[in-house]
Structures are given as C-alpha cells and as structure tokens.
C-alpha cells in the first residue's frame, strides 16, 4: 500500500470490506437454515421467486450484521476476534455502516413482501429488528443471557423460508427454530470460554466473565442435553423419517462427546473443539433434514 494511504480511513473501503461488513460466516449459516425452511415447506416456488427469497434472507442477514457493526464499533476495537472488522479499523465509517445496513434491510423486506408475501416479509423485518434492537442495543452489554434471548433472531430464518413458500408457519419450522435457538447458547459459550479475556476487556457480560468458567461449562452441558432432546422431536413427532433419526442420533453423540470432554478437561483446546463441533453439528442436522426430505420424495 502506498505510504500516503497508510491510514486506513484515508485509503477508504475496498469492495471486499462491504462484504465483510455483512459477516459472511454468519450469513452462510443463516442462508443454509433459511434454504432448509424453503425446501421443506409444502408447495413449490417458481425458481426466480426461490432465488429472490434466498437473496432476501441473505441480504437481511447482512443488514443486521452491518447495523451490529455500526453499534459495536467501540467494543470491536477492543477485542482480538473483532478488531480487524472494517468499522473497527476505520476502513468503513460507522455512520456509513449504519446507512448501508438500513438500506439493505429496507431492500430485503420490501422485495420479500412484493415478490413473495407479506407474512415472510414481516417475519424477516422482525428477525432483523430483534437482532438489532433486542440483542445488539439492549441485551448484549447488559446481561449474560444476551445470547440466550438474542439467539431467537438467528433461529428465525427457517421460519422465514417456510413462510416465503406457504404464507404461514407450521410445527416443523418451529421445531427447527427450537433446535437453533437451543444450539446458540452452548455454541457461543464455548467460544466465550476461550475468548473470555476479550469479552472482559470490552465489558461484554458473557457468562464466563460474569459467572466463571465452571458455571459456564455446567450451562453448556445442560443446554446441550436439552438441545439433543429437542433435536429428536422432528423424528419422534413423525415429521421426518429414519435418515434424520439416525443422523440426529449420530451427530448428537458426536457433539455430546466433545461437550463431555470440555466438562472433564477444561482448557482452551477442548473449548475450541466444542465450538467447532457445534457448527458441524448444526450444519449436519440441517443437512439431515434436507436429505431425509429428499429421500422421502425419491421413494414416494
């Protein structure tokens, strides 16, 4: 980089910075769960409308992330994990991130409403609003229950996807919502266990900072137990077939082993492992739902 532009703010944002502002890693999971809802819903969408729905869910996720980056710029600068975010480094001004996020949110909701239906658009608006107002602005800096309640926002995309196809909500998308909702706390607490100094420095009251590591590990074990039970519900209630049942059992055992290791051997290595395995677990559960649905269609 030329010396004149050593200062990141002077250099200005690269196109890639706007992409990073939308937290593409989070968007990937949101998209996958949203597509799961779209695919499992009864009825068929025209491919163009399906593409529009997927785009709206992705853009909605990016909008919420951009607004989160705007509000959290002060604490993002203090944490190792987030200090290279475009707003934290100054490559994108916080106000620009806010404007970008609001524009994307309006775009996503309006296109969802006009191209699909207003139930899905309302749910998408609620999801973005919940993430911004309830999680980011209200809970994140105030309570260790931040990601327990705030996790609802991340769990809603399959419901949005389902509503985009059917114009309503049913039991199966609510079960997927429940699974993601229960998955979120142990996932983030595993991360917080090995990033607790980061969160403490930024003054974010994550559970390990407020209650300590042993209490957090207890919570991870308890939530995982409830999560694994909830993951069985789609099969128990006969919404899915044997492929999902077997996959949920295997993935549950795999995740449980790593949570057990975190409990027995509390160290950074087991916490990182539990965090990574939780991601594999959720992707696996969603993939199993899709595979089960595909197999049912194949045999019928």
């Amino acid at each position: 980089m030329p010396a004149t532009f050593a200062n990141a703010e002077l250099a200005g944002p690269r196109t890639r910075d706007w992409w990073l502002l939308m937290k593409p890693n989070v968007m990937r999971l949101v998209l996958f769960s949203g597509i799961t809802g779209l695919v499992l819903a009864p009825g068929a969408l025209h491919p163009v409308l399906l593409l529009a729905a997927i785009l709206c869910i992705a853009v909605g996720s990016g909008a919420a992330a951009a607004i989160n980056n705007w509000y959290d710029v002060d604490i993002d600068r203090l944490m190792l994990r987030t200090r290279l975010r475009p707003t934290a480094t100054g490559r994108i001004a916080a106000a620009d991130a806010l404007a970008f996020g609001i524009t994307l949110a309006i775009f996503a909701v309006m296109v969802m409403g006009l191209a699909l239906n207003w139930v899905a658009a309302g749910l998408l608006a609620f999801t973005i609003g919940f993430y911004v107002f309830v999680y980011t602005l209200w809970l994140k800096r105030r309570t260790p229950q931040n990601i327990v309640i705030g996790g609802a926002a991340g769990a809603l995309p399959p419901v949005v996807g389902w509503a985009a196809v059917t114009g309503g909500v049913d039991v199966l998308p609510l079960l997927i919502f429940l699974i993601i909702f229960l998955w979120t706390p142990p996932h983030f607490w595993a991360l917080a266990l090995y990033r607790s100094r980061d969160y403490a420095a930024a003054g974010v009251p994550m559970l390990p900072v407020v209650a300590g590591a042993p209490a957090t590990r207890w919570h991870v074990v308890a939530y995982t137990a409830v999560l694994l039970t909830a993951s069985a519900l789609p099969a128990v209630l006969a919404y899915t077939g044997p492929i999902y049942a077997v996959a949920a059992l295997g993935l549950g055992a795999y995740y449980a082993v790593h949570v057990w290791r975190l409990w027995r051997d509390p160290c950074e290595r087991t916490a990182i492992r539990a965090f990574k395995v939780s991601i594999v677990y959720l992707f696996g559960i969603l993939a199993a739902l899709l595979a089960d649905y595909g197999a049912a269609g194949w045999w019928s």
């Binding site: 025209h46 163009v48 409308l49 593409l51 529009a52 785009l55 296109v111 006009l114 191209a115």
Partner: peptide
C-alpha cells in the same frame, strides 16, 4: 432480478 420477478408475477 426485478424484471424476472415481474414476469413471473
């Protein structure tokens, strides 16, 4: 995209 959505609708 808007053109295609309009055609489909």
């Amino acid at each position: 995209l808007f053109y295609l959505i309009t055609l489909v609708k």
